[in-house]
Design a protein around this nucleic acid. Structure first.
Lengths: 206, 206
DNA sequence: ATTAACTGTGTACAAGCGTGCACAATATGC
DNA sequence: GCATATTGTGCACGCTTGTACACAGTTAAT
């Protein structure tokens, strides 16, 4: 075998996906031990330290991967060119599909939003804030809401992200419910976001 | 000492408040062991089983206590008689105050919404659903939104609860930030809820 | 008054935990 | 080609974990 860096990267990824596998099985990340993740990655426990300082360190690196997943999602949703009236509907549909396809990352995210260590929680939250910021950019670019003061646009974006994030937690538990339950969920989320943006359209500065 | 049931209830409560103490210290409930909670309650580990089947059982009983806290909150907010235009502002203010005073319960709730076992998660979520249902009752009673179909009122209430619940998670991390940060938070949440209810007022059935 | 039920104690065990340390294998820099 | 740095191994240590079991003290039931 050649190339030491490649080999290292390989076991590093083994460790990270072993951690995700743990989450995918319904376990909480915080209950994952170094020994367990090493066993699943097929290495000896102490080898863990060649890659990560501790489990928190691993979690932060998972957040970085999650960040890539979210950026990819943003790209996909943005290139969707639906009519303005149907843009929410289309985005929700696409989002739900994406959550299903990248399920484990969103599981990890929803766990870490409230669950993990302070630093991990903060890391995930700053990802969401970045998301909200990008949404603000989009709202400006579409040039709807010209009457709204900037601070309120921020609050609007924050509310949007909050709503979607909270809904995601519910969506993730709907895995073994029938497709009609998912349909109803999509419908509900769509209506709720429409409600918010009707509010935004009718907002008069206070 | 007399009265066995009283004594039993006492150590039972010791166990439960020991668990809450653990959460209050910033630890995650799922990382609390039987031995640790027993130690903190001042009993021997095996005594735990005289009261609870396992930690999940204890968690469910904590959810029951949480339920009482939430009902108390609902009562307090309801007897607040602010003008219709200021009702959101007043409710948010009162809510934030209540979260601060019952901090540990809301910490436990926010952990269990996404963190714990499936059964605990479901239990907390059904508490929130109950809350949403009560909100629907209130909205009907105030007889605003006569144009809105019942299903949409449900979605509105759900969105309200989601928003507040998600905001609570943020609020709980604002404990050591200054009072101006809390002020800003209250302002943001108020604006967001106003946004939602402006949307509701302008909703036309689809 | 005696018996039974209950609640908490103490001990014990196997399993799992984090992690320090010496060592083997091997790719890399000179 | 040789010295070095890096990656993974294996072992060891002391600690914590869940829980089984026998037992003690006390209250409740008869």
């Amino acid at each position: 075998m050649k190339n030491r860096q490649e080999r290292k990267l390989l076991t590093r990824q083994s460790l990270m996906s072993a951690a995700l596998q743990w989450v995918e099985e319904g376990q909480h990340f915080s209950s994952l031990s170094i020994r367990e993740v090493a066993k699943r990655a097929g290495v000896v426990p102490t080898a863990f330290y060649r890659h990560f300082k501790d489990m928190d360190d691993l979690a932060l690196n998972l957040v970085d991967e999650l960040s890539l997943v979210l950026r990819q999602l943003m790209r996909e949703v943005r290139q969707e060119r639906a009519s303005p009236t149907r843009i929410i509907e289309a985005s929700v549909q696409q989002y739900c599909q994406y959550v299903a396809s990248q399920r484990v990352f969103f599981l990890f995210m929803s766990q870490s939003m409230t669950g993990g260590t302070t630093v991990v929680r903060q890391a995930v939250r700053s990802e969401l804030q970045y998301f909200a910021k990008e949404l603000v950019v989009d709202l400006r670019r579409l040039d709807l809401l010209p009457n709204m003061e900037p601070a309120m646009v921020d609050h609007l974006a924050d509310l949007t992200i909050s709503t979607v994030a909270f809904a995601t937690v519910q969506l993730l538990d709907l895995v073994d419910s029938g497709p009609q339950a998912r349909q109803a969920f999509e419908y509900k989320l769509t209506r709720q976001l429409q409600l918010i943006y009707i509010g935004a359209a009718n907002w008069r500065r206070a």
